[in-house]
Amino acid sequence: MLTYTLRRLALAVPTLLLISLIVFLLLDLAPGDPMAQMPLTIPPEVREQMRIALGLGEPWYVRYVAWLHMVFVVEPSHMLAAATGVDLAAEGARLLSWQSRAPVAEIIAQRLPQTLWVVGLSYLFGILVAVPLGIASARRPGSWIDQTGTLIAMLGFSVPTFVTGVLMIVIFSVTLGWLPSMYDTTLEVTDWQSLRRQAAQLAMPVAVLALYNAAQISRHVRAAMLDNLAEDYVRTVRAKGMSERVVIYLHVLRNAMIPVVTVIALGVPSIFAGAIITEQIFRVNGIGALLISSIHAADYPMVQTLTFLFAVLIVLFNLVADILYGMLDPRIRYD
């Protein structure tokens, strides 16, 4: 297992390097000009100096290696230095956002907690809804609860998050006035009052993404449960006179969760992508909103780094899913 993990990790590195190179070249060779949004009154020689100041004077491979150096050496060392208080910061220029001239890593670090809260809570609630729903659906296929589950799953698949989000705002903010439609990031949780306000403003973004997650996961739970209920060992357990509760929860569920756990791991990157849209609806200033605003502002270092971050999530959780599968199912042997 350890050698397999190490081998997969070693394979992930070239994949990620290749993806970062693709994104870099895409941004670099595309016809769009990062200076296009600057005022036309800037004289050409000043414009040239600005290009050089942004680091655009060098050929692309020099800038790509510089970006790699900044992302993997300079920025982590600065973060480590800030975390420990020890002066570990590496020499060299930091990766700056063109929009704000602040280090990209610091801006992302400011934005990340909001995204993690929304994404984490929605995934948690999604799983908490999906697993019981999937179990109930699988116990009585074709029953009303199965049909409701199918309908919820189909709606979760088919209704885009921006439609459910807007619908919830119309219902809960505009009509009923229960929840705020905009996320207030300046809110600090200090007492019960502010905790309640934090919960209220998290409720809708989390609910929108949770529905989407529950739709995906509940179908997998149902399918895995049905697969296992048809197995011989279930008949054996029943023949031994075990109660239905023991059959379902002690035997079938534990086996059915093996593929479901990998599905849950594989789904993590896609809900970060879903957060891009959800953050836009509810004005949560997480990394999704940051990506959109950087794209509109043609802030290439930020776009490049954030896209790379999303790619890291995908590769990382693919790896996690495979390793979990090997750990949970003793029949799976990778080496």
């Binding site: 993806i19 994104v23 941004l27 891009i276 776009v303 790619a311």
Partner: peptide, 23 residues
């Protein structure tokens, strides 16, 4: 195919539209 599956689709789509729209 594996490489394309590892690409973050939505950010890449946004970047593609941003870069090639005007041209």
């Amino acid at each position: 195919t594996d490489l394309f599956l590892a690409l973050p689709i939505l950010p890449i789509l946004l970047v593609l539209v941003l870069l090639f729209r005007e041209a």
